[in-house]
């Protein structure tokens, strides 16, 4: 028996050192992603060039010119403004709506489970196709929603085609597609909360608004953070829905970053400007995700420390 240790060790043969193991485990994932890093860096280089595909002879480094030009370019500021408004509006509304639905469905029952799965269907509709669906439904001629609108007295409601309602319409589609995402994360969160504090509060006769704001919300914070993070960063990069519904129009009502960059590349073939727009967008998302994740990790650490 005394020599068991040696025998077993000999039997194991190949052995990855303990220090190397985590690197070995994460290396493949890292390598795959680094492959993606190379084009990323190329794009950053492009953003410092005067680079139009249609004028290859004029391609040269102009360093910060693409960025400096943005300063005086009302189009850029409009893009920034529209992107932030869009992201802010959709995330706020989806968060409120998603939380509301999650609270309605919190109790486990056959009906609730069924409804929660049904509500996931919009999430499973590709945004590009969802936009197509909504376009059909908001068609002023045969669109069912336009018909409904006319029934409630909105005879001439122009949905995505009027500057005054275009944002509303795409936000509506975004809400339709992505609220289920927030709903499902928050529902998961609600259902995993420990029951004791709520039972105690109920026994003590604590008012329910108080319970909600002082117990439910704080305990749900990590879930809300994750859901908000994923949504916010996706939303500020929205492309599919807006492009399919209005191509950024009418006018420049909805020229968000990705739409503007897409048009700059594919139509104007102005690679330099397109890349610079994307780099700025990336910087915004990097900054936001950094803030969120630091916060998230801190929460997590604290939760761990307490337990």
């Amino acid at each position: 028996m005394a020599s068991t240790a040696r025998e077993r060790k000999a039997a194991s043969g190949f052995r990855i050192s303990r220090k190397a193991l985590p690197y070995v485990l994460s290396l493949p994932a890292l390598l795959v992603c680094i492959g993606i890093l190379v084009p990323f860096l190329s794009a950053v280089v492009y953003s410092f060039q005067r680079y139009r595909l249609s004028q290859p002879w004029a391609r040269q480094f102009n360093w910060g010119d693409n960025y400096i030009n943005f300063m005086t370019d009302p189009g850029f500021w409009n893009t920034l403004k529209v992107s932030l408004i869009y992201a802010g509006t959709t995330v706020t509304l989806e968060l409120i709506l998603g939380l509301g639905i999650a609270l309605l469905l919190q109790r486990r029952s056959t009906v609730n489970n069924f409804v929660s799965i049904m509500l996931l269907m919009p999430l499973m509709t590709a945004p590009a196709l969802a936009a197509l669906m909504w376009k059909l439904m908001t068609n002023p001629g045969f669109g069912i929603l336009s018909y409904f609108a006319s029934l409630i007295g909105l005879e001439d409601f122009r949905w995505a085609s009027s500057p005054s309602s275009a944002l509303f319409t795409v936000v509506l589609v975004d809400i339709w597609v992505y609220t289920p995402f927030i709903m499902i994360l928050l529902l998961a969160g609600l259902r995993s909360l420990p029951t004791q504090p709520f039972e105690a509060a109920a026994l003590d006769g604590v008012p329910r608004t108080f319970v909600f704001f002082r117990i439910t919300l704080p305990m749900l914070t990590p879930y809300i953070l994750t859901a908000t993070l994923f949504r916010l960063l996706d939303s500020i990069q929205q492309f599919d829905i807006i492009y399919a519904m209005t191509q950024g129009g009418p006018g420049d009502t909805l020229t968000v970053f990705q739409v503007e960059a897409y048009l700059n590349f594919f139509q104007s073939t102005n690679v330099g400007r397109s890349a610079a727009l994307m780099v700025i967008l990336w910087a915004i998302t990097y900054f936001l995700s950094n803030v969120f994740i630091k916060h998230w990790l801190r929460l997590r650490e604290r939760a761990r420390g307490e337990s």
Binding site: K19, P22, Y23, S26, A29, L30, C33, I36, V38, P39, F40, S42, A43, Y46, F230, L233, Q237, F239, F257, Q258, A261, Y262, F265, V271, S274, A275, M278, V279, L281, W282, T285, Y286, S289, N290, I293, L297
Partner: peptide
């Protein structure tokens, strides 16, 4: 391990890179 949080964050940040940014040079590569 050393740098684990940084690597994890880097990996996660790819999720948030605008797809168009990498897509265009990627076609060439």
């Amino acid at each position: 391990f050393r740098g684990s949080e940084d690597i994890a964050f880097t990996l996660l940040s790819f999720r948030f890179a605008p797809p168009l940014l990498v897509l265009l040079p990627l076609t060439q590569y």
